[in-house]
Design a protein around this nucleic acid. Structure first.
Lengths: 107, 107
DNA sequence: CCTGTATTTCTCGAATTTGTTAAAATTAAT
DNA sequence: ATTAATTTTAACAAATTCGAGAAATACAGG
């Protein structure tokens, strides 16, 4: 399959990849073990795993001819940073509302 | 354009839509004002806006023949919930490590 | 060295997404 | 009533993504 040029957000856009992350949150698994949980060929799973690794959502360590996948923080942190930006938006919006209320009702 | 069946994650997978959310975090805007910030036709922007609204990232209020877009919490909260799930994974992983260290080094 | 297992690479096709232009709907203003 | 401005709908083209299957690579064990 072609070289995927996906950013962090596009990576978790795919439901299969999110399911893989969920599975890996319970335990590290080899690629073949992952395949058992999907209605998908091995090459397809392999490709998703590579995308997840490239985006920093998992790390892979080779054990003989098997490859163990484990969750990795990096990818998640990028998403969290993005959400944090908008959290500040909500916070400042709330603050503006407070000020407005205080000016209108200076009891 | 066809009816898009996109989930929350796929919605923010598109860079243009993320840019729209960023712009709207500074101020509410009409669709036409949004168009000025993009190298894209009006219908294209209009479609993205509809997708963002459907997914709960923005709300729209009609003012005459213009439509004002404003950020809305719902979409963001769904993403935060997903990230929170994995935060617990990291927390419990850290806890396991602590227990392990305490058992090995019971000073 | 040969066999079986785990995984990846390659080639390809189908489905989905994103964009464009032209035309329609809606509303404000002259 | 016409005209101009804002937005959407419709039909269609281009790009991207997701998947399958066959063949190649890598490695463990007899």
């Amino acid at each position: 399959m072609a070289i995927p040029t996906l950013d962090t957000f596009q990576v978790i856009g795919d439901p299969s990849r999110r399911k893989m992350l969920m599975l890996l949150s319970e335990d590290s698994m080899t690629i073949n073990s992952l395949v058992d949980h999907f209605d998908m060929s091995r090459p397809a799973v392999s490709k998703h795993v590579k995308i997840l690794e490239t985006a920093g959502f998992i790390s892979i360590r080779d054990m003989g001819r098997e490859r163990y996948c484990t969750l990795k923080k990096d990818g998640f942190e990028e998403l969290q940073a993005w959400l944090n930006y908008f959290d500040e938006f909500w916070a400042s919006k709330l603050k503006k509302l407070e000020i407005l209320l205080n000016n209108k009702l200076p009891n």
